[in-house]
């Protein structure tokens, strides 16, 4: 099976305190820790496991810039067969639809049976996979937390409310957005990354892919971020500023006062 996984490099929200910059037009990017988007990493692991069961190749692609090569190299170290960086000045400022358009043109240059994305990235949008599927006219399933290959079809589980799972049969080729927790992504150490340091990562742009310039970039974006801000909050928590021991005492008394001791 030929599998494509679309990944993205994002600031790691579990490692960073995100703050709005002085101009309000971006977050403070100095000293941010970046990593591959968590759900995308699960998608790569799932692709590798499927390939190892049924054969084929895993290609990893990202739309971005030079800095994003590091996540592609990480996924190569995990075991992806090849990685491609899609990058062009004309892509800057694209909205979700613009990114999906670029990926659609990339997909059309190859032949993939299965395309995976992470369910959502740092913007929480959960949009590119579904848009890409509609542009390609492929079937789509979101929030996928299990995949079984069954001939020319897949059986996929989707995460729905209350911990329940919805099981669907889906024809290939298709696009799936992968939910975190579907598998246990393998560990990648510095050694593994060094071993793929010399693997070439081709860069493709507008001319290679035949992207219509007026369908991507800032000018084509129907949805644009105006600014970032920190909302005026309702009261928020009463913060305890005592020593650790004092705070523990206060918490004990609060729990006891609320009838919490058994």
């Amino acid at each position: 099976m030929e599998i494509l996984v679309c990944v993205r490099r994002v600031p790691d929200t579990s490692e960073n305190e995100i703050e709005v910059n002085a101009a309000g037009n971006d977050i403070e990017r100095n000293e941010l820790v970046y990593s591959v988007n968590e759900a995308d990493n699960y998608a790569v692991e799932e692709a590798l496991q499927i390939r190892d069961r049924v054969g084929g190749n895993v290609t990893v692609v990202t739309v971005g810039g030079e800095d994003d090569e590091e996540v592609l190299r990480r996924e190569l170290a995990m075991g992806a067969n090849q990685a491609v960086l899609v990058s062009d000045e004309d892509f800057n400022g694209s909205d979700g639809r613009g990114i999906a358009t670029i990926l659609k043109d990339f997909v059309k240059k190859g032949r993939y049976d299965l395309i995976l994305t992470g369910v959502q990235a740092d913007d929480g949008a959960a949009q590119v996979g579904g848009m890409l599927a509609a542009m390609l006219d492929y079937p789509f399933a979101s929030l996928v937390n299990s995949i079984t290959v069954d001939g020319g079809k897949l059986k996929v589980g989707r995460e729905i409310e209350g911990g329940n799972r919805e099981i669907n049969e889906i024809d290939l080729p298709c696009v799936l957005s992968i939910q975190t927790g579907i598998n246990e992504p393998r560990y990648v150490g510095m050694r593994g990354i060094r071993q793929v340091a010399s693997v070439p990562i081709p860069t493709l742009g507008v001319s290679n892919l035949g992207v219509e310039k007026d369908s991507v970039g800032e000018a084509a974006a129907k949805v644009r971020r105006v600014d970032y801000f920190v909302p005026a909050l309702s009261k928020g928590a009463d913060m305890l500023h005592g020593s650790r021991e004092e705070n523990a005492h206060t918490v004990f008394e609060l729990v006891a006062a609320r009838g919490g001791l058994k």
Binding site: A126, G130, M131, M135
Partner: peptide, 19 residues
């Protein structure tokens, strides 16, 4: 909505704003 809307926005050629 996560399943439906992104693809629908493409098919009806509309903007999509999530969440």
């Amino acid at each position: 909505g996560i399943d439906l809307s992104p693809g629908l926005s493409i098919k009806v050629n509309s903007a999509f704003v999530p969440d």
